[in-house]
Design a binder for these strands. Structure first.
Length: 301
DNA sequence: AAGACGAAAGTGGTTGA
DNA sequence: TCAACAACTTTCGTCTT
């Protein structure tokens, strides 16, 4: 493999054969998307045929961290004849052992990363998240692991946390609940990992903006573009007056959509709206009451 | 009968001593 | 570490369409 990452020059590329991608393990960039299958391209019907056709050994596997090519250096300071080594040799061997240890450590890291990337892919394709989010999450995870933040907590939890963060950063927020639905970790753990990582990496994301939820909720509700537009308008007003600060963004988005749908004679029930926004009817109700009162909106029947 | 309403008690997470 | 706290949920009985 003579490839290196065009982004950061690293030669440490990970091959994901299931997705036919090559991903840089340094920065998470997807380097190549069409990957060749290194397995045999022929079919053998008996062992004689196999021997003739086989030009290579067994396909290299990426399930084993070092592709089965690692070497061990014995800890005894003896040569192959069992004799003691002279001091010069000993020092050399000592240095070699040191490097091997270091390589092993970074190997454990890339194994961890490989697993995390697989999980990340599984999660985000389940949730139909765009590629840029996947990559952002991968980069984040990479940083987390470099800082040693993953140790002691589950890889799944941390990947889910990174994904949550990336969604927010890319302005297509998913709720913790939504991620928890597909992740093999519960919401609490995801939130914990998320907060921990963001704190340790010194990343500060602005609170989720209710506006970011509107497009998705609107399309899931199946309301017209006008309804969506009006909902945005209502929300903006509400935000100016400070009706949304400190409140759950989803509740606010839901309420705006609810009001807007009524105004446009496309009435959705509180139940429908609340289900999509993953809040209760009561919350929709409270928010919408607030909006109605404080913004002087005439909304009845 | 379904939807909307509101009171009251419960929940999980943050904050500040 | 604990208690206070705000936002949100759950539950449930009542009113409205």
């Amino acid at each position: 493999m003579n490839d290196q990452c065009p982004e950061c020059g690293s030669q440490n590329l990970l091959h994901d054969y299931d997705r036919a991608e090559v991903v840089c393990s340094e920065c998470g960039l997807v380097v190549r998307e069409t990957l060749l299958d290194l397995g045999p391209e022929w079919r053998a019907f008996d062992s004689e045929q196999r021997d003739k056709r086989e030009r290579t050994g067994a396909p290299m596997t990426y399930m084993i961290h070092d592709k089965g090519l690692s070497t061990d250096i014995d800890w005894r300071n003896r040569d192959i004849h069992g004799r003691d080594l002279n001091p010069g040799k000993r020092a050399q061997i000592y240095r070699m052992r040191k490097w091997q240890r270091r390589i092993r450590v970074s190997d454990a890291m890339s194994r961890n990363l490989a697993f995390a990337l697989t999980e990340l892919n599984r999660l985000s394709s389940h949730m139909q998240l765009p590629k840029n989010i996947r990559e952002a999450a991968a980069v984040l995870y990479r940083r987390a692991i470099e800082e040693g933040l993953v140790r002691g907590r589950s890889i799944e939890g941390v990947t889910a946390g990174c994904l949550y963060a990336s969604c927010r950063k890319c302005k297509v927020p998913r709720t913790l609940d939504e991620i928890a639905e597909y992740a093999r970790v519960e919401k609490k753990e995801i939130g914990r990992s998320y907060r921990y990582i963001m704190r340790e990496l010194g990343i500060r994301l602005p609170p989720t903006n209710p506006l970011d939820y509107i497009p998705r909720f609107a399309s899931e509700l199946g309301v017209s573009p006008e309804v969506q537009r009006r909902a945005v308008e209502i929300l903006k007003q509400a935000m100016e007056v400070g009706l949304t600060s400190g409140k759950g963004p989803m509740g606010a988005a839901a309420a705006a959509l609810y009001i807007s749908s009524i105004e446009h004679d496309q009435r959705k029930t509180q139940r429908e709206v609340s289900e999509i926004a993953k809040v209760t009817e009561v919350t929709v109700r409270n928010r919408y009451k607030d909006f109605q009162e404080k913004l002087g909106l005439e909304v009845d029947v």
